[in-house]
Design a protein around this nucleic acid. Structure first.
Lengths: 154, 154
DNA sequence: TCAAATCATTCAATGCATGAATGATTCGCA
DNA sequence: TGCGAATCATTCATGCATTGAATGATTTGA
């Protein structure tokens, strides 16, 4: 046991995840910037793609943000032609958001950018380690009620 | 291989790390709030404790933030009595920051709070899995030039 | 010795996100 | 059937973290 030194804060999952998460987000943000997207726009598209929510209020719940923020995010995505906004005929208070074909293409582009960012960010990990990390993060995500990559939504 | 469904964005390390990191930070922030601290204040204390930097400009470099932000963070910590600010006699432009005894105690309290937050956040992971996760995050952190828990600073 | 560089600090500006207020629609109940 | 309360989306003003530019003090190098 050679690792001495630093206090527990620094080896805490919560603390380190926070610091690295901010860096990861910055890196990803830089990659998608050219498409006029921020990470939360991609997050919204992921939620739609996962079929986890359709009305804006539900989306706000899944994303853990204020409903008014969803309005702004959806405005941008709609302007880009990535989503459609349709009043629910059964309840005309609700706005139902769906990915357009162009939205799916845009999401696919973001997927590639995310993978290229992964290659840079996790360059020190072997493929096996990377898979372990993804699996563990997925378990944590599932517990937080996020769309999980190992849940088939259909 | 049952995991079908979602696109690669959602299983990307960078993307998922970002989302979970934000949640982790929120959780940790809530725990330390009563001590008038934000995560970045703790981050600054960790840097000092690790002996990674002493002048404010160095600290800004390690933390990846603007020097003017370090001023504000240090102001708060000094007001709380957690750090001392002393002009370097050899170069009186530099402010040398050091943890006070109270600062070390405060950091210890944050350590406990971080661990309790860990217990909640990673409740689904076994102790072994948690250790693996910490190790992998540590590898990533080291690559990003952060104070690593497995680096003895002395 | 003096001009350029360096460090800390202040200050104004930016951008993300929130909560309260508003309007439209639906629901529950008398 | 009708009316008040609840629900959803939207707008708006506000708060807060962070940045970059401007300023002042000090050091460095020529």
């Amino acid at each position: 046991m050679l690792s001495v030194a630093l206090g527990k804060v620094n080896s805490s999952v919560v603390f380190r995840l926070g610091v690295l998460g901010a860096m990861a987000t910055d890196l990803f943000a830089a990659r998608i910037e050219a498409h006029e997207l921020k990470p939360k726009h991609v997050g919204l598209m992921v939620v739609l793609d996962a079929g986890r929510a359709s009305s804006q209020l539900e989306i706000a719940g899944v994303m853990g943000v204020a409903p008014s923020l969803v309005v702004a995010l959806a405005d941008r995505l709609q302007k880009l032609g990535a989503i459609e906004r349709v009043r629910d005929p059964a309840d005309r208070r609700r706005q139902v958001l769906t990915l357009t074909e162009h939205g799916r293409e845009l999401l696919a582009v973001c997927e590639e950018l995310a993978q290229s960012a992964d290659a840079e960010f996790a360059a020190d990990l072997t493929a096996a380690e990377s898979a372990v990390l993804t699996g563990l993060l997925d378990r944590l995500a599932a517990r937080q009620g996020l769309p999980s990559a190992s849940n088939d939504p259909k």
